[in-house]
Computed example of a mutant assay.
Amino acid sequence: MKLLLASTWFQLCWFAAVLGTYQWQWLTLILTLVTLIYCIRADAHSLKSISFITVTGLVLDTINQQFSILVFSTQWLPVWLLCLWVMFSWYSYQLKSILYRFPKPYVSLIGGIGGTMSYFAGFKLQAVEFGFSTSVTLAILFAQWCVMILVILKVYGNEELEKKLETETD
């Protein structure tokens, strides 16, 4: 039930961000802040890992913007995309117990496809433009997302190890 609620919440936030882009940034920001408040109350320890993944994603998309792989109508990454990275980082944290049940290469491949398709959907919904041909941009995004998923698995796996070590020393 918890996973169903988290998935529904994430999809709601994704739609607010990608369909609303600049017009609904305030709504996306409010939904993100509500999520962070919930996170602080439910599992404040997770914020360290969620923050790391968020910053990593924002750096990646900033690089993509600087190299005109992704083109936005603003000089900097839009607020709605920043919120989307926070939400994705939170959501992937919610999924971690499921993700670790499968071999990392498979999770990376599926995550690579999912992340790429999310950007493709954003492109089709006119939330972002591609600076290169669609096929070249999707190939770049796929490679990035496969690596990003491995980073996520590593970060959230290290967090579990830290928690385990903390409980053993207490």
Results as ranks from 00 to 15, higher is better:
133 S>G: 09
143 A>F: 04
129 E>P: 04
125 L>S: 09
107 V>I: 11
136 V>T: 14
126 Q>C: 07
107 V>R: 08
133 S>T: 07
137 T>L: 12
127 A>F: 01
142 F>E: 13
135 S>H: 09
112 G>W: 01
121 A>S: 06
114 G>P: 03
126 Q>K: 08
106 Y>P: 13
112 G>I: 11
137 T>I: 11
122 G>N: 12
114 G>A: 15
121 A>D: 09
143 A>R: 01
113 I>V: 15
110 I>D: 04
114 G>L: 10
113 I>F: 08
110 I>R: 04
127 A>N: 02
108 S>K: 11
119 Y>L: 02
108 S>A: 15
142 F>H: 05
107 V>D: 10
135 S>Y: 03
116 T>R: 00
132 F>L: 12
141 L>Y: 15
124 K>A: 11
124 K>C: 13
120 F>D: 07
142 F>T: 14
139 A>R: 00
142 F>M: 09
111 G>M: 07
117 M>L: 06
128 V>F: 06
123 F>Q: 10
139 A>F: 10
124 K>Y: 10
108 S>V: 11
141 L>T: 06
138 L>N: 00
120 F>L: 10
131 G>A: 05
138 L>K: 01
130 F>M: 03
119 Y>P: 00
141 L>W: 10
122 G>I: 13
125 L>K: 02
136 V>P: 05
105 P>M: 12
122 G>C: 03
122 G>V: 09
115 G>I: 07
123 F>Y: 13
114 G>K: 12
139 A>I: 12
129 E>Y: 02
132 F>R: 03
109 L>C: 08
141 L>E: 15
108 S>M: 05
134 T>F: 06
139 A>Q: 04
116 T>L: 00
121 A>R: 00
136 V>H: 04
117 M>Q: 12
132 F>I: 11
109 L>Q: 06
109 L>Y: 03
143 A>P: 10
134 T>V: 12
119 Y>A: 01
106 Y>R: 11
119 Y>W: 13
139 A>W: 02
110 I>C: 04
130 F>S: 04
135 S>D: 15
105 P>K: 15
128 V>W: 01
135 S>F: 14
106 Y>L: 15
120 F>Y: 14
122 G>W: 02
125 L>I: 13
113 I>A: 13
109 L>M: 07
110 I>W: 03
120 F>K: 03
137 T>P: 02
137 T>W: 01
127 A>R: 00
105 P>F: 04
117 M>W: 08
138 L>T: 05
138 L>C: 05
119 Y>V: 03
143 A>M: 07
127 A>P: 02
107 V>G: 05
108 S>E: 12
139 A>N: 02
115 G>C: 02
120 F>S: 09
110 I>M: 05
110 I>T: 05
131 G>Q: 10
131 G>M: 01
122 G>Q: 15
125 L>M: 13
106 Y>I: 15
113 I>Q: 08
130 F>L: 04
138 L>F: 02
117 M>S: 13
139 A>E: 14
140 I>T: 03
